[in-house]
Design a protein around this nucleic acid. Structure first.
Lengths: 328, 328
DNA sequence: GTGAAAGCGCTAACAA
DNA sequence: TTGTTAGCGCTTTCAC
């Protein structure tokens, strides 16, 4: 690959002048022309790493997520990629498999590559990311908060979503509404339980066995649903707290020959590629793509020097702003 | 962030010695100890960009794919990420939306960041990538070939898959087997049509209207299926050439109230998260994740200096090797 | 085995 | 407006 020196020599100017042309500084037109000609002739591309070493900037953003195979994160990634690409940034895909060790490895990568910031869906509390915040790198949490007041966040309105999911059952005339959620260490799992409980309590509450803390995976939804069905007094409706568990739960129903007429299912999240939503199934979409887009825009703003206090952006099912909160 | 000089000073050695410790060269044990202590104390991380500028190497690989939201590419990405992470490399997610302009932009990113190679599912012939091959950067094509003998490739056995998908219908006693494929410019679409035709021709062929060149998207599958059903002499079975079109086709059937008993469906690819495969639906899985893993391993080998002639690795539905071909 | 010094390709002062 | 020069943080000769 050609260097700036070769371009300079071919164009008959100094490397500094080439640099100026590259960076849109004012240069006398004839010089500019010959520099551009030389660039074209040599097929020259400025070296980002050399520039980066000098300017201490980098156009590389980390997207740190637990599972790219979960369609929620896939859509989120798509949204983030779209925005970052348009801004001339590249997205580094960091899949952690929900493992803190992998998170730490990727934190080190962010440091080693001097990435100016990251979009993060953390496993647990997110303390792995403290080093990055300490160094002043902006972080935008997505889907779940990071336990650090310096990080921005973009989230769905999980409470409202769970309330809507549960109220739908009520409107259908269901009276024994259960809930399958994720692990209690996960913020969204807790929030959705809170929404479910709020509605259920208004109608006199639900027995303890109606709440199952599962794991957000397909198999977890499957076994949770089986457990609910085997109860002495089984529910007539279930709120499922995420997309993958919903698939598991619906699979269990299908295999057991139980119709969604007998037991209604309402889902916090979008069912990926449902061939045709069975009757009795309701879905409260999660604006995954919009979360990714908003997070990317927020992060780019921070990188650009926005020093406002950290914000939490909450999006409703349509991806519209619910409210913006000041630092927690 | 601390630099190698600060570490050297704290450890009472020269930067060169610190560098040697970092790179595992032989250094007198006491020195090594004090250097390591200094590194720990300062929380020092070597700057990859500085090292990269000096060594002309980089641990960043581009994954260039048309659509991360297609579960096939999602799984492929997952496999590639897994392998590259273990090898200390990072994956840059390059989503092209099937647009050559975006491909070109990402080719420029690969150059600017001096990435040593890329995994590529190209739009069209893949000529966008010639500059990279000209510079000697190894490329591994996935899913579809690149029209360049210098690029390796890892693919599914699409011909065999389509044959199996079609023969399944034959075994079910179907007699009028149609095919919904992608655009003829796409290699996999052509291969799968070839497989379908091979089986169908053995049984006396199929009318022209039974072959639909659609577009690999959900809506394409939907409208293609509707078109087939409205034929004067509609088929009693359909081979659908990819996962997304299969979803569209099945949705159409469901909406029209046609059962898969009346019209069998056989799919080249994996149906993502099917709640329960309807009877009369058959699936020939595509080893997406394995393709990603193999491609990553192959690419890392090339980066590592493997200069054997370009190979095409073909994997069957289980992800096992079918054969390896010499350059085409 | 270790240190001094040069240089990777770029940008930013500073002079001219 | 332009060129000269120094330096970003590292690795790698080359002496010692």
């Amino acid at each position: 690959m050609a260097t700036i020196y070769e371009v300079a020599e071919l164009a008959g100017v100094s490397p500094a002048t080439v640099s100026r042309v590259l960076n849109g500084k004012t240069v006398r037109p004839p010089h500019e022309r010959s520099v551009k000609a030389a660039i074209a002739e040599l097929g020259y591309r400025p070296s980002r790493r050399a520039r980066s070493l000098r300017t201490k900037q980098s156009e590389m953003i980390a997207l740190i997520i637990p599972d790219i195979e979960n369609p929620f994160f896939t859509s989120l990634a798509r949204g983030a990629e779209h925005v970052t690409r348009k801004a001339g940034y590249s997205l580094v895909l960091c899949n952690t498999d929900d493992s803190p060790e992998n998170e730490v490895q990727y934190v080190e990568t962010v440091q080693a590559e001097h990435m100016p910031g990251a979009i993060v869906a953390a496993t647990g509390s997110g303390h792995s990311f403290t080093p990055l915040l300490d160094e002043g790198r902006p972080l935008v949490a997505v889907d779940r908060h990071i336990e650090d007041p310096r990080a921005d966040a973009v989230m769905a309105d999980n409470l409202a979503g769970a309330i809507e999911a549960t109220e739908w059952h009520v409107r259908q005339g269901r009276e024994r509404i259960a809930c399958i959620s994720g692990q209690p260490s996960v913020e969204t799992a807790r929030e959705r339980v809170r929404g479910w409980r709020e509605v259920v309590d208004r109608a006199g509450g639900a027995p303890d066995e109606y709440l199952i803390w599962s794991d957000y995976h397909v198999l977890g939804g499957d076994s949770a649903m089986r457990r609910l069905l085997s109860l002495p007094n089984p529910p007539d409706a279930v709120v499922v707290a995420n997309n993958l568990m919903a698939i598991g739960a619906l699979t269990a129903l299908a295999q057991l020959g139980v119709s969604t007429f007998d037991i209604g299912v309402s889902v916090c999240g979008t069912l990926p590629y449902v061939i045709s939503a069975p009757p009795g199934v309701h879905t409260v979409p999660l604006p995954a793509r919009e979360i990714g887009e908003r997070a990317a825009r927020l992060l780019l703003g921070r990188i650009d020097g926005d020093t406002e206090p950290a914000r939490t952006i909450v999006l409703d099912s349509d991806g519209a702003d619910v409210r913006s909160r000041e630092p927690r």
